[in-house]
């Protein structure tokens, strides 16, 4: 991990001191260094939210798009150039509120993307409103009387929709997070890595201490090829009872891109755009 400074950019980081994003950032740079992800083979896509600033802090080709739309942008990049390792950074508001529809459909297609879901269960950038991950009863600027909505379980939703790699990690556990990022990236298909992270400014429930005390690692007894078992494990959430690790991994189902005959032998953009003679086609209109 000695060369992670290589991915440094001239920009000063603007996350709050203690933010969970630092762990995610560090783990990703470590993974990139280890796997040699660089500007010849990788593109990252971010949504809008605190997480989205990451494109300013990593010297990698990136697209910081619109709130909720990181996944379809990434899908377009991957279909056009499937040789690229395409990593999506998205937040719980970005991915599950504004972008919920895209999340479900990309999972359904098994699009070959790595989705790194920064989950701090609150809206940080807009200074503390409830998110689709905030617990019931959670008090925030938008829910001063307590949140009436139940939180969504993004991994159960992803699994139900068809994601073929479903995992969870805690942002402070950098070695394990690094390893899971690499595994998710290597997975051929829609890989979702939910990262539990604190928002030190606006979420006083889900703190570093909370995650350190209440998470436990899935052990070998958990069969990651068993979807029913994965669903059952994903129901667990509570004191000392939050599993982290790989819940489900299906390596036999082809990704969306693997099923496209147009890119079976070479990426779409490996040949530049060419003017096409369509005389034969016009004949069918005569």
């Amino acid at each position: 991990m000695s060369n992670i400074l290589n991915l440094k950019t001239p920009n000063a980081c603007n996350w709050c001191p203690g933010c969970g994003n630092f762990g995610i950032w560090t783990a990703f740079k470590a993974a990139a260094e280890k796997e040699n992800w660089n500007n010849t083979n990788t593109a990252i896509v971010a949504g809008i939210g605190c997480h989205g600033h990451i494109n300013n802090f990593i010297e990698l080709t990136s697209f910081e798009g619109l709130h909720g739309r990181a996944i379809p942008i990434a899908s377009g990049i991957k279909m056009a150039n499937n040789a690229l390792n395409v990593v999506v950074f998205t937040g719980d508001g970005d991915c599950l509120a504004e972008g919920g529809n895209h999340f479900i459909h990309a999972a359904r297609r098994n699009q070959d993307l790595t989705v790194i879901l920064h989950d701090n269960a609150v809206y940080g950038l807009t200074t503390g409103q409830t998110s689709p991950r905030s617990p019931h009863g959670y008090k925030s600027k938008s829910t001063p009387m307590g949140n009436l909505d139940e939180p969504i379980n993004p991994l159960s939703a992803a699994l139900a929709a068809g994601a073929t790699f479903v995992a969870r990690a805690y942002s402070g556990d950098i070695p394990r997070l690094t390893e899971l990022m690499i595994k998710a990236s290597k997975h051929k298909g829609f890989a979702v890595l939910q990262i539990l992270q604190p928002c030190v400014s606006f979420n006083k429930i889900y703190t570093h201490i909370f995650f350190q005390e209440n998470t436990y690692h899935l052990d070998k007894k958990h069969d990651t090829t068993n979807k029913e078992m994965a669903f059952a494990k994903l129901q667990e959430w509570g004191e000392k009872h939050i599993p982290v690790g790989i819940f489900y991994e299906n390596t036999t189902q082809p990704s969306y891109e693997e099923q496209l005959p147009q890119i079976k032998t070479a990426p779409l953009v490996s040949v530049g755009a060419q003017k096409r003679n369509i005389n034969e086609l016009l004949e069918s209109y005569a």
Partner: peptide, 30 residues
């Protein structure tokens, strides 16, 4: 397949335009 381009039916028009933007960013005429 014959002309070697990709047509994708997306989940909505938001995805339609953003997928095309992604593909174009990657270098495809979109």
């Amino acid at each position: 397949e014959k002309y070697n381009f990709i047509y994708k039916q997306p989940e909505d028009e938001i995805s339609a335009i953003t997928m095309a933007i992604g593909a174009s960013f990657a270098g495809a005429r979109a």
